[in-house]
């Protein structure tokens, strides 16, 4: 009985100790995340242009209706989905491929240095990367066109033509974020128990079977988490595009992030941009739900 009481006291003390540590984080989260989100939800029902003399006017769902009837927003959604699907797919394939290569070459000399170099694009500031690539791809002064011109006598207007510009921002995104999926692949592979892998080696299991029965069940959560994070990040992409093309030429690279920026900070339509942010947030939540559902489904099938 005495030991039970002692255990209860210990638990209460531990709880109190934990609460004290978590309280500042919760407060921070409420002040900087929850309140602004509620504020934004509310503002989405008002017509409010920051640079007009008029205060917010309640308009119900009109902002949402305007957005859904705006061809340019649909165009931005369409481009964003293409950007996300193609970008994340290529990054995932490359990330898994390179991750396996590095995983299988643990004794390669200079491996750590190579990995550091490979991860460099991911840690660079996106704005700086965007500016670098804008200069590199410039048709008149860019180094890439200089090389192409010298070697093959061709010149490509990378950022001046709609398709080229979209492909360019996509390639820069792939260059920047493939390392993230390499890292997630390595983390996923690191979570596979070595005993099981050794047993598979002793049983001379082919790689496909080893992947299916040992690597995938252990590593899938981390890998899918990586893909999920990349999908959400890619959906919000703005900085690189902003510095490389500003959504142009025309609206060829106008992703949702740029469209939202222009609505909020060029037109100063705070009500409509809040509504658009809510729609974007719901889409991001939708992505998360789909990924979690896939994970849970597999768990249920396996369980």
């Amino acid at each position: 009985m005495k030991s039970l009481n002692r255990a209860n006291v210990l638990t209460r003390n531990t709880d109190w100790f934990a609460y004290r540590f978590i309280t500042p984080v919760i407060l921070f989260f409420i002040v900087w995340n929850v309140i602004p989100v509620f504020w934004m939800v509310g503002l989405g029902f008002y017509k409010y242009v920051m640079i007009s003399a008029h205060g917010p006017v309640f308009v119900g769902l009109k902002n949402y209706i305007n957005i859904l009837n705006d061809v340019r927003i649909w165009n931005a959604f369409s481009k964003t989905f293409t950007f996300v699907v193609v970008g994340v797919f290529v990054e995932t394939c490359l990330g898994i491929f390179l991750g396996f290569l590095f995983w299988g070459s643990r004794n390669m000399p200079g491996r750590r240095f190579a990995l550091t170099l490979l991860f460099a694009p991911m840690v660079l500031t996106p704005v700086a990367s965007g500016l670098f690539f804008r200069l590199i791809l410039d048709p008149t002064f860019g180094i890439l066109n200089h090389i192409l011109n010298t070697l093959f006598n061709i010149q490509i207007n990378f950022l001046g033509k709609g398709f080229n510009a979209f492909a360019s921002i996509l390639l820069v995104d792939i260059w920047m974020w493939t390392p993230f999926l390499i890292m997630m692949t390595l983390a996923a592979l690191g979570s596979v128990p070595s005993a099981e892998l050794e047993a598979a080696d002793i049983d001379r299991l082919p790689f496909i079977s080893k992947f299916r029965y040992i690597i995938w069940p252990h590593g899938k959560f981390i890998l899918i988490l990586g893909i999920l994070l990349r999908t959400i990040e890619s959906f919000k992409s703005m900085d690189v595009v902003f510095t490389m093309t500003f959504g142009g030429p025309g609206n060829a690279t106008e992703l949702l992030g740029i469209a939202l920026y222009r609505k909020a900070f060029e037109s100063f339509k705070m009500g409509e941009s809040s509504a658009l942010s809510i729609i974007a947030l719901l889409v991001a939540i939708g992505f998360t739900a789909i990924f979690l559902e896939i994970l849970n489904k597999r768990k249920k099938v396996e369980g």
Binding site: V49, S52, R72, G162, G248, P249, E266
Partner: peptide, 23 residues
């Protein structure tokens, strides 16, 4: 006009769209 930013933003998109051959 106070609405200059909105007017400008729209036409910049349309004009550059025409210049780049999208329209």
């Amino acid at each position: 006009e106070p609405t200059y930013a909105e007017m400008l933003s729209f036409q910049q998109e349309e004009f550059t769209s025409f210049a780049s051959g999208n329209s």
